[in-house]
Design a protein around this nucleic acid. Structure first.
Lengths: 231, 231
DNA sequence: ATAACTAATAGTCAATTTGACCATATAATT
DNA sequence: AATTATATGGTCAAATTGACTATTAGTTAT
């Protein structure tokens, strides 16, 4: 039975690509790897590869991301598949794109497997990528802009304790717009998503802001039922 | 070159499944086909099949839906792929699910290709389907409930001219809840999505309601920018 | 014709939320 | 002590919501 008989056999017409958004210093980055082999050798691209016969697609995405970049234990979600006939040269390959949002500072990058290098790249400075990877990036960014308005975000992006300004910067980076500070605070605090830590930030050269953390229960409930965030 | 050399060659580890929601008489239906061959012969399932090397995934979805059910010219959107190792017996097959919403009355069904029968089935009476098709259905229905609250819907589901009550029934069928009539009207009319036809419905045994149609421009704009619909 | 019925449409109103602000507080720096 | 930077608190008119009641315009039964 092919499913288990050849554990390293790969599905050849189907690949995975991972679009990892990282948040750091108020800016959004994208995780790119430099390919060490294959037809795009030497080029920067989204981390991706092939699915094995004995792993689920979700498992393949996590394995590939980890082996190429060193990043693991993150919550990868499926974006969608990209299936144009000519998207990959010579061979017919359909790819399933995954995405995630993480705090870029929490992960140390180490290239591996078919990657010779791995780097965060500011989302506004991403070069021309091979195949349809730029299109995948745009689709993911658009998806993110939509998501931020209808689900809570930030759980995996922000440090455990963060200020209201931190989370505002995150929203501003994703929505590419400026938000009114007092109104943002009011709206965010009213949904009971944040719990005060009763601590202040340190090492800032101005009045220290209060630190908050997410209320996981409320976060999950709002993720399930959806919310509206327009400012 | 495999992409064009064997036009009928199929990608064997990857399939398509279509989840078509139909709206009729205030109820939501799902389009099912009875398989005429293969390991699920004689069983009802979602219409689906294999992708050819020289067609995009979107094209494959439309072709398969048309050849199995006779339904064509609808806007199929990708739901997501389902890639558990054991989802399909014996072979490893990953499927990409598509979905659409249509007015069930606008399409005449005719089974073809590998389907011996095709029928609308009330969403609450769907039997046990093979593989993970029930899971796909649930994921699609959940997606629909989310979508209805954040994007305008109905363009392809309702007749060209419809009453406010028509569209309310649609929302109620999807959200599985009852909505307050005056408040629903107010909210819907305020977003300038509907244009009055200056006509009344006919053949009803009570006061006739005004007919409206969608303003395509506003509809597309709201689809792009998103909206909030909570009642 | 008139009453009863059905559903469409209009309107009310208090409570909440919003958007656009201004004001004050608390720290570090000059 | 003044200046600067940011956090945090507060105001207010306008818009929106949610829960209703009232009225209108037709059909059908008496």
């Amino acid at each position: 039975m092919s499913k288990t008989g050849f554990p390293d056999k790969i599905i050849d017409a189907l690949s995975i690509d991972c679009l990892i958004f990282g948040f750091k210093d108020g800016e959004l980055d994208v995780l790119l790897v430099k390919h060490a082999e294959g037809i795009s050798k030497g080029k920067w691209a989204l981390p991706g590869g092939w699915i094995k016969y004995n792993e689920s697609v979700d498992e393949a995405a996590n394995r590939l991301l980890h082996s190429l970049t060193g990043v693991s234990n993150i919550y990868l979600e499926q974006l969608r598949s990209f299936g144009e006939v000519m998207r990959y040269p010579l061979e017919r390959v359909i790819t399933i794109a995954y995405y995630a949002l993480v705090n870029a500072e929490n992960y140390s990058l180490s290239p591996g497997f078919t990657a010779s290098d791995v780097q965060w790249c500011n989302i506004h400075e991403v070069p021309k990528l091979p195949y349809d990877h730029n299109e995948i990036l745009q689709a993911g960014f658009k998806h993110l802009k939509h998501k931020v308005r209808h689900e809570p975000i930030g759980f995996n992006l922000l440090p455990k304790k963060f200020t209201l300004h931190h989370i505002q910067e995150l929203y501003e980076a994703i929505l590419e717009t400026e938000l009114d500070k007092p109104n943002f605070r009011r709206k965010l605090l009213k949904m009971n998503l944040l719990v005060p830590c009763h601590e202040k930030q340190e090492d800032v050269s101005h009045r220290a802001a209060s630190l908050y953390r997410f209320d996981k229960k409320v976060y999950d409930k709002l993720t399930e039922k959806g919310l509206t965030f327009e400012l």
